[in-house]
Design a protein around this nucleic acid. Sequence first.
DNA 1: ATACCTGCAAATGTTTTGCGACTAA
DNA 2: TTAGTCGCAAAACATTTGCAGGTAT
Lengths: 144, 144
Amino acid sequence: MPHKKEIELFASHIRRKNLKHTEQRTQILKTFLETERHLTAEELYVSVKRKYPSIGYATVCRTIKVLCECELCRELKVEDGVSRYEHLYGHEHHDHLICTSCGSFTEIMSPEIEKLQEKLAAENEFALTRHSLELYGICKKCNH
Amino acid sequence: MPHKKEIELFASHIRRKNLKHTEQRTQILKTFLETERHLTAEELYVSVKRKYPSIGYATVCRTIKVLCECELCRELKVEDGVSRYEHLYGHEHHDHLICTSCGSFTEIMSPEIEKLQEKLAAENEFALTRHSLELYGICKKCNH
DNA sequence: ATACCTGCAAATGTTTTGCGACTAA
DNA sequence: TTAGTCGCAAAACATTTGCAGGTAT
């Protein structure tokens, strides 16, 4: 059974928060886990709707919130103003290369940059809680 | 005369693009140049309206676009989804510390981080055009 | 039984656009 | 004269919310 841990995490969050285990939530979680990362709420909605046509967009948005609360999902805000959602559980922190031609997201990570960010924050006596780093440009594929 | 260069830059952009030199644009430019940085369109609108009550919000938004085109202004997209605008002319590239308590923006710059970003992009054969780095947390003042 | 949940439509909040009147060049 | 501009109201767009009916526990 794929995503066993994630499904258990979701179930225990549901229990802990006195929420209800509904077919809609199950379908949204399943589709989210099965799908490539960095999708928009709209994309997830369309995807779920294929298997569960009665689903409403609002339910998808509300369930994404629950997924974020239990740390299965992370919201990314990028420059087009549309939120994207990616898997968080079991994934190391990372930033992104975002191709402005094909819209692809590539995960990147630099421990040196992380350290330098902390140094900058410390120099400004700033209590860092999180950061957002995106590099925009043209990806390898689009550059042929 | 303050902001002489900026006003000339704006005027020459106006000429080059066959736009017109209107009182509204003059007022918006003036207020933008005189005001602390990182304001929203709404804040700039309110500010201009004080001296020029007939101004419309749409005109402010349209003029901000022109300011960005002639590189007097840079648009920042941050996590609250509201665009902020800052002075660009004569300002070195920088990133921001953003206080989630008081909303203040502090400019930061690290040549090492810039270099590492270029290195990351190169490693991924990614043609970097720009980036966005914001550090969120609590600023010195708010942390008393 | 009773919280909680759902889908829908309406509201929200920001930014953009269509339009008829107006104005700079 | 005429292309470009203005202010207004409406549209756009993603996301959120109110609500009445439905469902899990």
